[in-house]
Every structure is written in structure tokens, then in C-alpha cells.
Amino acid sequence: MNEVNMPAQPSVLDISDLRVAYGARTVVEGVSFQIDRGEIFGLLGPNGAGKTSTLSAIEGLVKPKSGRLLVDGIDVQKEPLDAKARLGVQLQSSSFQAELTIQQIARIYGGLYGVKLSREQIGKSMRAIGLEEELGKRFKQLSGGQQQRLALFIATIHNPLLLLLDEPTAGLDPQSRRGLWRRIEELRGEGNSILLTTHSMEEAQAVCDRVAIIDHGVLLTVGEPSELIDKHREDPRVLSVAHGAPTLEDVFIGLTGSEIRD
């Protein structure tokens, strides 16, 4: 992408040898990967694999035990506010203040990201995501799909370089899920990069340029979805779970095992 004599543009995200632990328990171990501009990267893994913990380290919510985290070349631990200004975040479980209306949430979170929105602009944005009737409602009064659209709107309010979405389609109906995929494509078209976590192989194949499979805090494999299928199609663990030609899900189950996680 870069000419030899041009200054290299830093990766949007550069994680090397990340280790996250809660107390004595290590839940992310030696994770390294990069995300390029305009790329949609999927982090796949069973429950408890360490996906949220990896994102939390990038978001500055947990302090890594070791490793290096660069967002647009900026060290997340040394300059957290500069890094956070480049990140748009939709957490797996979070909420907005229960007393605030949708209108107030848009205005206040815009301000937190340095974006001043007028009443008209908020009205227009909410119309675009089908929430124009809900401006006076509270977050709790919205349906799951509406909450997700608002959360995504807030996450992208400052047009972030990198968008972090933690299981954004969990609990959504198929219509909302497709709607979100379309929005993700649009964001990529606008130059944003996206790191999302998911359990859904369909989703990974539909929207992700590259995926990584993580389990027990360790990255097992990284690549384009089709590449991963090719790379692991001869793996006996994958063959033993495949019905016919191996799919991405077969690779996933083959590498992470059939045991059920909670």
C-alpha cells in the first residue's frame, strides 16, 4: 500500500503480545494482530474466549499486564485520551443514563466526543435510523433493535477511525441484523475500520475481510474467511466435524472443540 520512500501510514490498530489478566487468572495471552484502514476485522470465539477482554484493553477499560497497543500509531496506555478520540465503541453490555431522553443522549454524547449537534441535526440523524418518533423516550423504552441503532449512532457520532463493536448482532432479529450489516458496509465505504466480535460464522463470512479465531485467550488462526477454510481443510479436527466440504464453522468447531461453554 505504501511506496518505499513514503512515510508509512500506521495501522489503524496494532496489537502485539497482549496479555490481560484478572487477578491471578490470565484470560488473554500473547495476542497479536493488525487492522488496516478500511478493513473489517472479525474476532471469533466461543463464550469466555477473551474477546471482550481484548476489546476492553484497546478501549482502556482494563490495564493489560503486558504487550503493546497502538491505535493509529498512538500508544493506548501512554496517551489514552488521544487514542479514545479515534475510537468509536459499542460495548457488549452497557447502557445510557436511565433518566436521559434519546434527544439528550445524542446531544450529550456528541459533546463528549467534541461534536456539537443542533436540535435539527439530531432530528435528522434520528430520522435516518428510524428513531424520529422516539426522541422524547428513554433508552430503556426502546426495543432491542432500536437500542442497538442508537448505540451504533453514538459509537459513530464523531466519525471514528476505528469502530469497536462487541457482539453487535446478539439478540437482534434477522431484519435488524441485515440492517446492521448494511450500515457496517456503508461505514467501511466512508473510510472507517471496524473490529467486531461475533459467534456467527454467517456474519463473519458476510461482512468481515479478515477474521481471527480466539480461544482460551490465545489466537488460533488469522486470515480471510476463505483462506482459513483452505488452510485448515486437511486438519483432522476439522474433517472430523465437517459434513461434506468444510465450512468456516467446521474450522471454528475443529479448532476450538465441541465442548459447550457458558
Binding site: L61, L81, L87, L91, S95
Partner: peptide, 13 residues
């Protein structure tokens, strides 16, 4: 309910 975490991922210290 996660309001504090939501605020903490913004660039507000």
C-alpha cells in the same frame, strides 16, 4: 448497568 463504562470509553478523563 454499565453507564460508567460507557462514559469511560469516551475521551473524557
Amino acid at each position: 448497568i454499565g453507564v460508567l463504562q460507557r462514559l469511560r470509553v469516551t475521551p473524557a478523563p
